[in-house]
Amino acid sequence: MSDVEPRIRAAWQEWLNALGSDPEAAIAAAQVYGALSSDGRDAWLTALEEDGPSLGVPKVALYAPLLSVEVDPARIERIRRGMESDGPVVSMRHTVALRGVARDKSRIAALIAPLYADFVQVLWCSYRTHTGFDWVRLDSIQRAASAPRAGDRAEGIVLEATPLKLVVEELALAILAQRRRGHEIPDSMVGFANLFDAKIDADTGS
């Protein structure tokens, strides 16, 4: 954006600054980005890469809204690289786990990790510890107020607050079972990169 008219560039940067603290701006960013063409999205990312370093806004605030609407693998990877340039996006230390167990022993878990301001990231997993994953979904960014809570239902199963360590241990078993079947780990789970962060050891009570 080096050849952009200064007033327009200032307005753009002011709007980017708002992403760090204004939930409405972040939601609007996702909507606007989602409506752009492929070339427009590439240009947006290029502009973020140029202007982001000079702003006092966490990178996750600039990129996370885009991740919620992007489906192109190459741009998703570009967004992830941008988000993680500040370091790990999600802290497992403050992540909360909900889990429900169905009658057939299959499980649904939601790991809710604070991102910034009023936003959280939610990793949903439907799994069986001895066969692997039925499905995995990553909600890259959503309002904390709309995140799942204990007592909510997912696919008819009541979610209960569960120690994070217990859920992570079950997910480890499911990953092992998945690999035994010769299947890859779902991409969405890889996006929740700090799932097996060493800090979880100090988090047995959450």
Binding site: T129, K165, V168, E169, E170, L171, A172, L173, I175, L176, F196, D197, A198, I200, D201
Partner: peptide
């Protein structure tokens, strides 16, 4: 980087 994953596996087994 695999240590916590493996420790989780062992503790779950």
């Amino acid at each position: 980087r695999e240590v916590v994953f493996i420790k989780s596996l062992v503790e779950a087994s």
